[in-house]
Design a protein around this nucleic acid. Structure first.
Lengths: 146, 146
DNA sequence: CTAATGTCTCTAGCAACTATAGCTTCAAGA
DNA sequence: TCTTGAAGCTATAGTTGCTAGAGACATTAG
């Protein structure tokens, strides 16, 4: 059995984050030692590694919750898991498209800056006037995860 | 003079967001009508449009605060503004790189899923085992803005 | 045995809003 | 003029995914 610290190091997750996952029900309540400290099995480590990996891939905790409950039912169709992954892929693709446009706009902005004073600064000017932009980066989906 | 609603529509910013910007000092306190309602000038509209545009380009409110205070000093060098824009460009580029890796991994995952049952699902399997991944998307910078 | 480290709970904070409740003000129609 | 409905006001709490701190207890190395 692992203490919370060992578990965290093994899975690459910080200790308070593990407690947080338990608190929101993403991890089951851990067993406790005589002195009330959390103890974790190999299985718990696997589950946490799963969460960690899915987070790294940008899945929300809600999506991970669903994926975990699916992975607990090995006999069911994987259509649902597939759908979640596909949705995440779409998310990532749309963010990618948006970021690509942003990058182009920022590059344009930075290139045009001749380095004079603020009054002549293209950075400030472009920010103040969207019509100076080449691409349509308006009202984009603002994101939360990587 | 514009009411807060008109201002919001003109700038493409929601009314509560405008009040929030005022609250955190990004917008100056608005003038008030006899009945205590906020009233905005053309200048206020420009300032809000600037903020909106910068947000669309992914600048944080902190960065925008700096850019705004710079834009109020037209005689100074634009080096600082330039630096902020360049930092933002770097940010966007690093997010882009990360997202590109994520996309590849998600595509692999989704492609490999044969559509059977959970026990055979590549999506679940790959999530459970990082070593099945092609790229290094581990411990990436998790972001907040677009 | 003691000191250092690890763990415990609880609360509050971060960004950047969004939503709700319960009130007042305003503009337009009857 | 009255009334109704939209728009405005304040204040507070919620969102996501953690992170940081306080103050107390547990464990372990020397």
């Amino acid at each position: 059995m692992l203490t919370i610290g060992k578990l965290g190091t093994s899975a690459g997750v910080k200790v308070p984050t593990i407690r947080y996952y338990e608190q929101i029900g993403l991890l089951p309540e851990a067993e406790r030692s005589a002195g009330n400290q959390r103890l974790y099995s190999r299985k718990a480590l696997e589950r946490l590694a799963f969460i960690r990996h899915a987070r790294d891939l940008g899945f929300t905790l809600e999506a991970i919750r669903d994926l975990l409950s699916l992975s607990d039912k090995p006999d069911q169709s994987c259509a649902a898991a597939d759908a979640i992954a596909k949705a995440q892929l779409l998310e990532v693709e749309s963010r990618l498209a948006r970021l690509t446009a942003l990058k182009a706009e920022l590059e344009r902005m930075v290139e045009q800056c001749a380095g004079g004073c603020i009054a002549d600064c293209r950075v400030i000017e472009v920010l103040g006037d969207h019509s100076l932009c080449a691409t349509d980066h308006r009202h984009g989906a603002h994101e939360t995860a990587a």
